[in-house]
């Protein structure tokens, strides 16, 4: 027993690599960013502490605040499209896949997951090709069903570009909610389903009344993952519309705004301090969203232990 009391060296040994790498590469830089947003350059180009002045510029200076609110509003719409389209489709596909005795379920699962594993470069490029008014797969296909009049250069029009990109992103990532909901549905015990069938609850009413309440926690996790993912999105917009998020900033979201500010683009030099300020604003937005989820929604979800 005396040995039990000795320092258990294996615990720090097991923990050390993860904690060290995580702290050094993730936590310290994250706080470094928050810190950098409190500094700026004075007239002599030396770094000085400016308190919250950068935030005053971001929200007070019309040139900055206009871009910021534009990016935030676009980002919110991007998120809304995902919640309204991606997650319901994911749940529907998962519900169909999990029905017993469905043939070829493994094939469907893999096929539907394939867009998720593609890189943004491929996704952005191929959809630009399909939607291109010149190369014209989309106009050709619409022509085949007699709907050619509906075609518009969706990625080029200010009013459609953001929604089009959001739907492309939905196409790409629908596999993730599908997989997670599918797993949650499979983990519902057979007894629960059998009991429901004994009571004559089958088919869609069984899904609505029995299964859906049981998978609500998973839907919650998916919603928050979607939120975090969407407010960090950057790649799809960057590869398909460029850092300027055209047309006329109609597809500018926080990620592209941060990139442009920090690294600069054709007309503007990079500005690390304002970049850090935007990053801090994003951090606060995400944190508020996550806290709202954790305290307002998750605590109200009922969990069932089987």
């Amino acid at each position: 027993m005396a040995q039990r009391k000795a320092v258990r060296w294996h615990i720090p040994v097991f923990l050390a690599p993860a904690v060290l790498v995580y702290t050094a590469i993730m936590i310290i830089p994250l706080f470094g960013t928050l810190n950098l947003s409190l500094f700026n350059l004075d007239e002599t180009k030396t770094r000085v502490f400016v308190g919250l002045a950068n935030f005053a510029t971001l929200f007070g200076d019309p040139r900055w605040s206009q871009s910021f609110w534009n990016a935030l509003a676009n980002n919110a719409w991007f998120f809304v499209v995902h919640m309204l389209v991606q997650n319901p489709i994911g749940i529907l596909l998962a519900a169909l896949l999990s029905s017993p005795r469905l043939r070829m379920a493994a094939f469907y699962r893999t096929a539907i997951f394939i867009p998720t594993i593609l890189s943004f470069v491929i996704v952005g490029f191929v959809w630009k090709l399909i939607l291109s008014p010149i190369w014209g797969i989309a106009p050709g296909l619409l022509d085949m069903v007699g709907l050619k009049s509906l075609f518009a250069p969706w990625l080029g029009k200010e009013e459609y570009a953001l929604t089009t990109l959001a739907l492309i992103s939905v196409w790409q990532f629908v596999g993730i909610p599908m997989m997670l909901i599918y797993a949650a549905l499979l983990s519902i015990p057979d007894e629960v389903i059998e009991a429901a069938e004994m009571d004559g609850v089958t088919g869609w009413s069984q899904f609505w009344k029995i299964k859906l309440p049981l998978i609500l926690p998973s839907i919650g996790i998916i919603s928050i993952l979607t939120f975090v993912g969407n407010f960090n999105a950057f790649d799809l917009i960057y590869v398909s519309q460029g850092a300027l998020a055209g047309p006329n900033f109609a597809t500018d979201i926080l990620g592209t705004f941060l990139y442009r500010t920090f690294f600069g683009f054709q007309l503007q030099l990079g500005d690390p301090h304002m970049g850090a300020t935007i990053a801090t604003a994003m951090f606060v937005i995400i944190l508020v969203g996550v806290c709202f989820y954790l305290f307002a929604i998750q605590t109200r979800l009922r969990r069932y232990q089987f």
Binding site: A18, V19, Y22, A24, I25, M26, I27, I28, P29, L30, F31, G32, T33, L36, I224, V228, N232, F234, G255, F262, P272, G275, A276, A279, T280, M282, F283, I286, L287, V290
Partner: peptide, 19 residues
Amino acid sequence: LALGIMIPIRLGTVAILQL
């Protein structure tokens, strides 16, 4: 350690680059 699931590493880009 779980904090990192919710907070994306990209927000630390500025400091990571400096590091």
